[in-house]
Every structure is written in structure tokens, then in C-alpha cells.
Design a binder for these strands. Structure first.
Lengths: 192, 192
DNA sequence: GTCGGATTCGGAATCCGATTCCGCTTTAAG
DNA sequence: CTTAAAGCGGAATCGGATTCCGAATCCGAC
């Protein structure tokens, strides 16, 4: 049974968790992977032990930060991309946002990339992001922007690719987005 | 001046270096990133100090292993891909090989990926690989397999993407290769 | 063949950063 | 206000890369 005996979590603990996560977001965005746990603790004004109580592992902390980023992307996609009636532009806008997030916050990029590709979406945010992608995909298939056999997986492969390309600075990821979306176009209705 | 005072390197040193590199290739391929320097040393039958003399850093060792992989890819591309008269197939074959290398040796994948995207090709191998890509690209533009404005950078973005996708197991990278090459096709001569 | 010094070896010691542990402090509940 | 549970801080521990240095091996000269 779900114990009704559960006491309300201490307010100071909640606050501390929040501070740590917030500070971690900033630090990772600025200096990326090189940030140390002790630094995060000091910057948040708590002891190392406290950081570890809330995020049992460096990896866990990184994942939490990553989820924040995902939430940002999700919010952006909902307000700026979905509303665009041109499906191609909506898709491009969505993918572009992913590239931008990497360009801005240098850190956690690899985490974002890994999470993007994971079939186990961490929590509600991942779930929602997946759903949003599905909706865009459906629209695209319906209005002919995408080939009929385009899959959600395809979209996420491309998203992962954008992540990798921007992270490694391989080239112009904006250009890549165009190429990839062209590749996902319906070949039967080309030529404008 | 290039010091003529340089004595020929000791033969045992050469041999040790070779052993270490060989053993490292195997270990990294089998167990990837988790391999420790001490392990490599033991497996190669030398002391840790020796490993460090030849590869001053774990990172350096990984890069050396990576170069081996690149050499394999280069050799394969030369003998199996270039000779294929169908440029599309040749390109696909080349990219497929990259995906396969990741699927086989689980390790150093991230290193391969990073190196693929680097504008500073490590040594002759990278140089040659770049040249080979350029040749395929040129062929593709000439025979209409690729759009006229396709760049070498595009090809390497795609290569990096294939690495990332196969490494993170985001999805079916073979399918991605098709999509990406479709996107790089000449849009003016579609419809068979 | 063998002598002397340069080069390489081996592996113990060191360094660094993540993670664990535990006595002390603060909060929720009665 | 009292008390036990929930949290806290940070010193100690651990794991693994990297450094150091005396001992062992080569190379080239005689």
C-alpha cells in the first residue's frame, strides 16, 4: 500500500534541492563537463553531503539538469513550433531549437544527446516531447510534407544527429536540418 | 633544424609500443570506455610506466586506437566502395561501414565520432579519408547522384550523424543513411 | 666483445575528484 | 515544549589516472 504515514517533506530540504539544481544548471551550461560536485555544493551554499542526498550521483545530477533543458525545449516547441501552419517550418523550428540549446549551454550536451536517443523517456517531459514529435510527424504525413512511411524514430534520429553535429561542431547543423528534412520528404510530390 | 642528432629508437621500445597499441585495440573494442590503463599494461605484459611513455595520456591512447579504426575504414572504403560504379551505392557503402565499426567494437565510439567531426585530421589517415570523401562527392555531383551544391562538410556531418546514431542506438542507422542521402540528392532530377 | 651513457622499464607513490559515513542540527507532529 | 525522523556538513575513503625515479637494457664506439 502507498503508506499514508508519509510525513510532508521538510521545506528546507525542498529549497536546498531547488538551489542545487538551479546552480548546477548554470555551472554546467557555462563550463560543461568539467564542473565538480564540490563546486556545485559550494556555489549552492550547501555541503557536499546535501548535494548527494538529493542527487545520489554525479550522473543523476546531470540527468536532472538535462530534464530541465528538455522542459525548455518542450515549452518552446509548443509555443513557437506547433502553431506554425507550415509543417516543414514547424519541424525545422523544433530541430533548430535543439541545435541552439547546444550552442548556448556548452555543457551536458552529451547527456542531452544520449537522452534524446533513449527509448526510456525520463519522466513526463520526455513523454510529452515524444508526443509532440508524434503530432508533428502525423501532420507532416497528412499534408504531404513527409513521406508516408516516415516514422517517429526517423525524427528522433535526426534530432540526435543535430545534437551530435552541433555538439562536435562538425559543421553547419542548420544546413543539416534542411538536408535531413529533404530526405524525409515525400519523393512522389516533389518539384514545386 | 630537424635534429640529425636523433638516434634510432630502441627496437624493444618499438615492439612494446606495438604490443600496447594492439592490446588496447582489442580491449577497447570488447569493453569500451571502462578499460583501465593498468589493465592495458598487464595485458600487454609491460609496466604502467611503459604504457605512459608511449601514450602520455589515456586520451592519447584512445586517439591512437581510433586512428587504427580509421585506417580500417579507409582501407575498406578504397577496396569496396570506390570501385562501385553506382555512386549512390558507393556512398552508402562507405557510411554503412562507419555504422558497422560502431556496432562491432563497442568502445572508442565517442572518440571516433569526435575525430570524424574534427577539422584537424590526425595524421595521414585522416587526410586520406578526407580526400576519399572528396572524390566520392565530386563523382556524385558530376553524375547527378548529388545536388550540385553538396559539400564535403555535408558528407562528414552525415558520417558524424551515423556515428552518433549507431553509438547511442537511437534507431536504425541504415535507414538514416538512406534518408540522409536522399536529402543530398539533386532535387531537379528526381522521379525515376 | 665489451664499455659508457642514453633510453626505456617497472611499479610504488601521489594526486584528484567522486562517493560514503556518521555525529550533529533542524523540522514536523502531537 | 518534546521527540524522533529527516536533513545537514564535511572529513575520511576509494578508485583510477598520472608522475617519479632507481634499476635494467639497448646502441654505437672502440
Amino acid at each position: 500500500m502507498s503508506k499514508p504515514t508519509a510525513r510532508k517533506p521538510r521545506t528546507d530540504a525542498e529549497r536546498n534541492r531547488g538551489r542545487v539544481l538551479e546552480v548546477a544548471c548554470e555551472l554546467f551550461a557555462e563550463r560543461g563537463d568539467e564542473v565538480q560536485m564540490a563546486e556545485v555544493a559550494k556555489a549552492a551554499g550547501v555541503g557536499i553531503g546535501t548535494v548527494y542526498r538529493h542527487f545520489p550521483t554525479r550522473q543523476a545530477l546531470i540527468e536532472a539538469v538535462t530534464e530541465q533543458r528538455f522542459a525548455e525545449i518542450l515549452a518552446y516547441a509548443r509555443t513557437r513550433c506547433l502553431p506554425n501552419p507550415d509543417t516543414r517550418q514547424a519541424l525545422s523550428c523544433f530541430l533548430t531549437r535543439i541545435g541552439q540549446v547546444h550552442d548556448e549551454g556548452r555543457g551536458i550536451s552529451s547527456a542531452i544527446e544520449a537522452a534524446l536517443g533513449s527509448t526510456e523517456p525520463r519522466g513526463q517531459v520526455g513523454e510529452d516531447l515524444l508526443a509532440l514529435g508524434g503530432a508533428l510527424l502525423e501532420r507532416g504525413r497528412a499534408d504531404g510534407t513527409l513521406r508516408a512511411d516516415a516514422k517517429l524514430e526517423d525524427l528522433y534520429m535526426i534530432a540526435g544527429a543535430v545534437s551530435a553535429i552541433s555538439r562536435n561542431a562538425v559543421g553547419d547543423w542548420r544546413r543539416f536540418i534542411d538536408i535531413a528534412l529533404d530526405g524525409l520528404r515525400d519523393p512522389a510530390r516533389d518539384r514545386p
